Simulated assay, not measured.
Amino acid sequence: MRVDMRMIHRTVLLLGLSVAGCAPDLRTDYPFDGQTNSGPLVEVTPQEDGSNLALIDATNKSARVFFDIDEGREMKTDEAFDTNGWDLSFQRYTVTMNGGGGNPAGEVRVAVLKNESWDSLTASPSEGYQQDASEPVFSGVEGGWYFYDLAEHRLAPREELLYVVRSSSGQFFKLRMLSYYDSVGTPARLSFRYQRLPAPTPTAP
C-alpha cells in the first residue's frame, strides 16, 4: 500500500493546531488572508510625555512588517535586509527581533521586566538582555506578551510585562504592548508605547 507522506504531515499539523489550546482561534483571527494592505503599515504618534504610540498593521498573515525603533518608521523588506537596520518585526501576533532566531546577524536584544511600572523605569537595566532562540522572546519569556481568552477568543496584552529593547544602533527603549486590536476591533493591528531610555550605567572594574 502506498503512503502519501504529504497527507500524513498535513494531518499531524492539523492535529497539533487542534490541541494547542493556548493558541489563538485561527478561524476568526485571519479575516484578511492573502490581501495586500494599501494604507501605511506603521503609524507613530508622539505623545506629550516624550513617549511614542505605534500602530502596526500586521493584518496580512503572509508578510512581516519591519520596524526601525530608532527612527520610528517602517522599513520595507529590501531595505530591512540590505541595511540590517530593522529592530522588530510583526506578523499577526508574532513579534520577532533582529537577533538570534529572528536573524543570527542581528544585534538587537530585549530584556523582559515583570511588575515594573512605566514611570519608575527611568534607566535601562544593565543585564537580562536576550535574543530570540527557537521561540521569540516576545512569545515565550514570562508567558509571552499576550494571553488568550478562551471564552471570548481574543488576545489581551500582559500588562505586567515591560520590555527594554537594545536597538540595532545600540540605543535603548522601554516598550509596552497595548492591544492586538485597533479602535474598531480589527485584529492584527497592534499598538504599543515606547520611549528612549539612557544607556545602562557602566559598572566599575
Rank of each mutant, 00 (worst) to 15 (best):
Q131D: 03
A133N: 11
Q130F: 07
L113E: 12
S124M: 12
D132H: 01
Q131C: 02
Y146P: 00
A133H: 07
V141M: 11
Y129N: 06
N115D: 15
E116M: 12
P136R: 07
L113A: 10
F138R: 09
A123D: 11
V137A: 04
K114M: 07
D149H: 02
E135L: 11
W118V: 11
A123T: 14
A123I: 14
N115P: 00
S126C: 10
Q131M: 09
L121Q: 12
Y148S: 02
D132R: 01
V112W: 13
S134H: 04
E135T: 11
D149A: 07
E142F: 14
A133L: 11
V141Y: 04
K114N: 08
E152Y: 06
Q131W: 06
W145T: 02
L113G: 01
S117R: 14
F138H: 08
F147G: 02
G140E: 14
D119Y: 05
Y146Q: 07
G140K: 15
A151C: 00
F147W: 14
W118H: 09
E135G: 01
S134Q: 06
E142R: 13
E135S: 07
E152H: 08
A133G: 13
G143M: 12
G128F: 05
D149T: 04
W145R: 00
S117A: 14
P136H: 06
G143Q: 11
L121H: 10
F147M: 04
G128R: 07
L113D: 10
E142N: 14
L150C: 06
S126N: 10
D119A: 15
F138V: 12
E116R: 08
D119F: 09
Q131N: 02
D149R: 02
S124A: 15
F147S: 12
G144W: 01
P125Y: 08
D132P: 02
E127V: 10
T122M: 04
A123R: 15
L113Q: 04
S126G: 14
N115M: 09
V137H: 01
S120P: 08
N115E: 15
E142L: 13
Q130C: 02
A133K: 11
W145I: 07
S117D: 15
S117V: 12
P136S: 09
V112H: 12
G144R: 02
E116P: 00
S117I: 11
A133S: 13
E142D: 14
L113K: 05
